[in-house]
Structures are given as structure tokens and as C-alpha cells.
Amino acid sequence: MSQDCQTLSDYGLFIDPSNPTQHPRSPGVLYQLSTELFSNYASKYRFLFLPQGAVIDYQAKGVMSLPVGSVLVKTFALPYDTQVNSAENELLIETRLLIHRETGWTALVYQWQNQQAELIIAGKDVRHTLNNQGETLTFDYHIPSKAECKICHQVTSNDDNQNSKIMPIGLKAHVLNRNISSVNGQQQNQLSLWQQEGWLNGLPQLDSVAKSFAINDQHADLTARAKGYLDINCAHCHNPQGFASISGLRLSFDVDHTGFEYGICKQPPGWDGGPNGLAYDIVPGNGERSIVHYRQILSSAKDRMPPIGREIIHHEGAELIKQWIDSLSPSLGNCG
């Protein structure tokens, strides 16, 4: 893992090199998140490879640190129909690697063509058409360049954006705290399984571990669903060390969602409010007048949020955030 291989198969990560969605070679393990970054309705297949004998130390907040030698693998496959769940309904697009070397984390992107994934540096656009609940969507799916990976994965150690480094995003306790199917087909908590297998150290009682939920889980708490969605889609930039730190908007799961820092009656410093002249990130009780929701339904490169990673609107995610903001009491802040 010390070299940037030209083909994904050179790493020997999967038993079938042409299928990066299942059967990782030991010690690879599939992992799942309770809520995911939206990427044009792509399915994502995530695998973690830990060095032999290595252990992850549990962290209640933020991304858990992985030892040198760890590898994170994420494959994107675009559906032809978002309501059909099968391998035949998906087109392999890209596989991304995050490799933890002695010098830090390295991000590599591989494009799938003719059952083989080749390393790309400059990025690539791939035309795709899918059906989403009766709506036909044709768009250019953007595979990020090596430089663009830094927009989401970059963290800085001080306020002047110096000493930046690449870091993982999704390995947070609240999105890993979910049930998955174990080898024998039984449902088991993912964090408990990791501890049982000796991959995780220091896990507290599960009822004390924060938990977010899938956006379509109608039985789950609305705030936990909305905050989980904003955390995974926005907080990697909207945090004190992130790419959008200058905005002052902090959307991490553990930030108090009733305060100014989370956007309540907060004016953004770098956006003009769009054609509707919106003034505040979140207007409690009024999703339509809230910039956080509004920029979810914009598509131009200068206005949409997130700025990269999506070319089409995530209607389900936008509706969730609007519903949550509408549920907030106007008494939380004075937006004028």
C-alpha cells in the first residue's frame, strides 16, 4: 500500500477483482452507515482493512482515528432505477481509496471501465440516466480529481488554512451505531461486533452512544434523522477545521442545533441570498426561508450545497431538512 497502483486489482483487495462490492480479502470487512452522503443516488459499498493486530480506539465525537496501514475502500455504483435493488440494476462508476501511510492519508480514485478500475488524477464526467420514482434524470456524474478530494477530506490545524491534511469522514460513532447482518444472518450492532472481533477498544454501553437514523425511518426521531443527514453531508466542510470554516456554520452532530452556531438566525458571510434574497441559514419554523434548505434545491455550481459530489437534487433529503426546520419553534431565535 506504499505505492499508487495504476489498477485497483494490483492491491488484491477483493477475491474477484472485477467485483468490488463484496468478498473482500482478509482482513477486509464490509461496514455500513445509518445515513449517507448523497451522491446522485449512487449505491456505496464500504470496506475497512486494518493492519494485522491493530485496534481502533473508540471516540464519542468526531472521526475515529485509524492506525497507519489502514485502508478505507468505497465503491460507487449508479442505479438505472432507484427503486430496484440488485447488481444487475447498477453500473460500476468508481472506487475510492484512503490509505493511511507513514506520511499521512492518501486519497486515490479509480474509474471502472470494462470490468477494470484504472487510476485517474484529473477527474472525469460520466453521462448517466436513471429513473427515480417515475422521473427520468440524465446528468453527468462527476468522478473527482485528486485535488477535489481535498475539498471534503481536508482539515486544517489553524485559522489561516496552513498545515492542512487529508482525513477520513464517515467513521463516526453515531453513524456506525446501527444493526447489520452478521455472518450467521443474525442482526447485531455494528460497534458491538467490532469490539467482539477485537477491532475496537473502549466501547461504552451502547445506550450511551449517540445514534443517528436513516432519513426514511419514519419511526425515528426527526431531529436525529435531520442532524445525522447534515452531519454526513455538510459537517466535513462546516466545522472549525473544514473547507467552509470561514462560514461560521457548524453542522456536526454533537453541536447544539438550537443555537446560533448551528445556523439559527445566523447570516452567512459569503453568499448573497440568491434570487429570493434569503438572509439566514436557519429560520426556525420556516424551511422555505432557510438557506440551509434552499441551497439543497439549487443546481448551479456557485449556489448548490454541497458544492461538489452531487449533480442532481436529493429531493428526499431536502424534504427532510425542510420538515425538520418547519418543526422548530420560532422562539429559538429572533430572525427579524
Rank of each mutant, 00 (worst) to 15 (best):
Q195S: 09
L251W: 05
I291H: 13
T156V: 14
G336K: 11
G62K: 11
G274C: 04
P306L: 08
L91D: 12
Y110N: 10
C152H: 13
Q162D: 10
L108K: 02
F49I: 03
S329N: 15
N163Q: 00
F47S: 01
H293M: 01
S86K: 01
R178Y: 14
K227M: 08
Q267C: 13
S329G: 13
H142R: 02
D326C: 02
C234M: 01
D254H: 09
M1W: 14
D160K: 04
T35S: 11
H257M: 07
A122E: 15
T35I: 05
P307H: 07
D57C: 05
S329Q: 10
L91F: 08
Q52C: 14
G170S: 05
P240E: 11
Y294Q: 02
L222Q: 04
D207S: 15
L206P: 00
P330R: 09
F38V: 02
T95C: 06
C265L: 05
L328G: 03
S245R: 12
D303T: 13
V29C: 08
F253E: 00
T35V: 15
L72G: 01
Q52R: 05
N132D: 12
F14C: 03
S182V: 11
A224H: 12
D272E: 04
E94Y: 06
E148A: 05
A301G: 10
S157Q: 04
L191E: 01
D207I: 12
A60I: 01
C234G: 00
F49C: 07
R101S: 15
L108Q: 09
T82R: 00
K124W: 07
V63Q: 03
A87C: 07
R289P: 09
N161W: 08
T258E: 15
M1R: 11
K266W: 07
A60G: 02
G185F: 04
L298F: 09
L251N: 00
L206W: 03
D254S: 04
V55F: 10
H314P: 04
I325N: 02
G285C: 08
L332Y: 05
Q267H: 15
Q190T: 12
Y280I: 10
K150E: 13
I291D: 11
Q133P: 11
R101Y: 14
S329Y: 09
T35L: 07
K165G: 08
L33K: 01
Q154F: 05
V84C: 03
S182W: 09
I264L: 13
G336S: 14
S26E: 15
G242D: 00
L191H: 06
W271H: 06
Q83V: 12
G62E: 07
P144L: 10
E90K: 00
P307E: 07
P27F: 13
C335R: 03
P268H: 02
Q323N: 15
P17R: 05
V84R: 03
L66V: 04
P275N: 00
I143L: 03
Q22G: 05
F260C: 03
L119K: 01
L50E: 00
P306T: 06
D81T: 00
G277D: 02
V68H: 11
G185R: 05
A226R: 13
S145C: 07
